[in-house]
Write a protein that binds this DNA or RNA. Structure first.
Lengths: 221, 221
DNA sequence: ACCTGAACACCGTTCAAGT
DNA sequence: ACCTGAACACCGTTCAAGT
């Protein structure tokens, strides 16, 4: 007789909640309502338990965020790689970028201390291999990885700010200051480019910008 | 008889608090205790008034943060500029970067929607002028400004994460994952660079990295 | 072993009242 | 006009108790 027709032999109550269930609920909440709406109380309500039940499965709120971050990283589709190393690197980073763009809340979590679980390592491994294939030394490969990560996270952050602005969120911002205010007497050069600003930011030029960055770091053939 | 020997003729109580006083207290708190410690209640305690007195001078907490951000931006020392446009741009951005590095909390505030007051515009104006002097078109100048801002904010964010790690803050992170975990069987390329990682991140290579980025964006002579 | 309910020590902010 | 005190509607988290 198969074991699972019996009640499990381990002692105590059977778990009604699982960590996966909690992570899934948190992911859904973040996606639909944003990071401000992610409270332990909201998560517990969404899985139909008391707030404290969550703490059986997750250390604290920060831990939960790391779990969610790793969860979405694990679901980034792994792209088929082109032949040239430079094109490989761009494709790999673009996949990461696209995923983090979808989850607008993620960059805010990363900003509070760039937490990342092991799921992203598959991508990092391929990026470093591509660098090596292009003839970069280990030090150069490490530097490239580091610099591009910095650029990527900054891009996400600024792009999110732009989206928020487009949706009409109020308040001053770097962006607003740059293309609304510029007093032509005090800031003639800024006033001159302010009309181009909109079109620069309207579309996301991550791929092209990343290409320029890579070209500055190394000569790829 | 000079007017100010009399009690002011405007009606009602004399203000005991000023906006400047509040912004100064908030700046000090942020610098010494970090962004988590900045509460309206803490600010009010530090200026010796009730929490609600603050709201007479500041709309809300977000507004206060923008004011502080602009305050520190206004105190960035304006550098003497070298002759070459490329060197000018690097010097200007480095001044901004250095200031924001000192105020580690700032990047977290920027991350929540890159707020910036008008005080930064002096720098932006000079950066765009330098781009134009180097022969860049208006569109190219705008793009360069945009891309470098993205890179700068990302650099600040990652560098802060590194500092936090060095100070022994717990929890997983992108950084930790990259130079502690890498399983040599599954991630051989990562394992190979992990020893270089420490030295790459130990010192801040913002200037050099920015140089590479500029070179990728444009040919400067 | 897992879950609950009440409670603690906080927040930002509103409101009515004092001077 | 400026400030205060009490209160509201929230947080994350601890603790003691239930099953």
């Amino acid at each position: 007789m198969p074991a699972r027709t019996k009640t499990p032999t381990r002692r105590g109550r059977r778990p009604r909640l699982s960590r996966d269930q909690i992570v899934e609920a948190a992911t859904a909440l973040l996606l639909s309502e944003g990071v401000a709406a992610l409270t332990i109380r909201a998560v517990s309500a969404s899985v139909g338990s008391s707030p404290m039940a969550v703490y059986r499965h997750v250390e604290d709120k920060e831990h939960l965020l790391v779990l969610v971050l790793d969860h979405i990283a694990s679901e980034i589709p792994k792209p088929r790689l082109p032949k040239q190393p430079r094109a490989q690197i761009i494709k790999l980073w673009s996949a990461i970028y696209a995923c983090l763009t979808e989850h607008a809340w993620a960059v805010e979590v990363l900003a509070a201390g760039d937490k990342m679980g092991p799921s992203i390592l598959w991508f990092m491994e391929r990026i470093v291999r591509a660098s090596r294939d292009a003839g970069l030394s280990e030090t150069e490969s490490a530097r490239t990885l580091d610099v591009v990560w910095r650029f990527t996270i900054g891009s996400l952050l600024v792009q999110r700010g732009h989206s928020a602005l487009a949706e009409g969120s109020p308040g001053p911002s770097m962006q607003r200051a740059l293309y609304e205010n510029p007093d032509a007497d005090e800031f003639p050069a800024l006033a001159a480019i302010s009309s181009r600003w909109e079109s620069i930011r309207a579309r996301d030029h991550y791929r092209a910008n990343l290409g320029a960055l890579l070209d500055g770091l190394h000569t790829w053939d």
